[in-house]
Design a protein around this nucleic acid. Structure first.
Ligand SMILES: [Zn+2]
Ligand SMILES: [Zn+2]
Ligand SMILES: [Zn+2]
Ligand SMILES: [Zn+2]
Lengths: 141, 141
DNA sequence: ATTTCTTTGAGACTCATTCTCAATAAGGGC
DNA sequence: GCCCTTATTGAGAATGAGTCTCAAAGAAAT
């Protein structure tokens, strides 16, 4: 069994959920691409592969994956949320062009550390963070 | 005329928009509090003051204010967006409790500077940023 | 195989936000 | 002020992402 399938099984088991073909299809579709896609795009891609999975199941499955750190949810400020898998992908945040929607990824260790300090200072146990820079990209300026 | 009224007039003029009593009412309501409120809460507060302004106008006016850096839009991850004025308030970001919804404000110069560096590195002209830390607050742990 | 509990799909539903469009009000010129 | 043009407003309809419902189908347990 593939590493990714293992991972899904493990998480579903931990959550007391069953391993089903639909959940596997959603997970497979999400890890098949490194793009930032919304739920409907993922749903459509699965259908194009000839697999029948409902929109509701796509949303439900993505929720589980997000909760378990396998998928990152991205609010791009306009329109539906986008998603990306986190398998083998190092942590990163995003810089987004408000003109053309282009998304670049960045990661600065120093910022990550400073976030931890802030959480500590305020007595919060940090679970996740959103860090998005919005601006005009080179091509759009 | 008050400083705040001036400010609104200036921005509306710059945008080629007219100064109206409704827009003034929305702006006055927003600057009257330092809380983080959603559009409907702001709408209700205006009505309680006896002023009649429609929900649509509240939304429309907030959009202008956000675009012109007078108001900050806050996506708290669940439910409607919240807003806060930026008059005389130094820039800050937010750390939010995912249990009780409590919101604290923080500001780290070093993070702000690092953001500028990232934007520069990617050739983006930075317009705004979202930086939100989500976790469990002291009381909820 | 039978029972029990979970999952699924189709579509209804929610709810924040946006849109429509006729009625009203600003702002500029006279 | 008064007129004219153009922007704004309000009420409610429309939108759209996401959630919920519930009967049917499927998994696990006995
Ligand atoms: Zn761009
Ligand atoms: Zn990414
Ligand atoms: Zn809390
Ligand atoms: Zn704040």
């Amino acid at each position: 069994m593939s590493k990714n399938k293992e991972k899904l099984k493990k998480v579903l088991h931990k959550e007391g959920l069953r391993f089903t073909s639909q959940r596997e299809a959603v997970w497979n579709e999400i890890i098949s691409s490194d793009e930032h896609r919304n739920a409907d795009e993922i749903y459509m891609a699965i259908r194009l592969n000839g697999v029948l999975v409902s929109r509701a199941t796509v949303y439900r499955t993505i929720d589980v994956l997000v909760k378990n750190n396998m998928v990152r949810k991205l609010d791009v400020g306009v329109g539906p949320s986008k998603f990306e898998h986190k398998m083998n992908a190092p942590h990163h945040d995003h810089i987004i062009c408000i003109q053309c929607g282009r998304i670049e990824e960045f990661m600065v260790n120093q910022i990550e550390d400073l976030q931890d300090s802030v959480a500590k200072e305020y007595g919060f146990k940090l679970v996740r963070h959103i860090h998005q820079l919005f601006g005009i990209c080179k091509d759009c300026q």
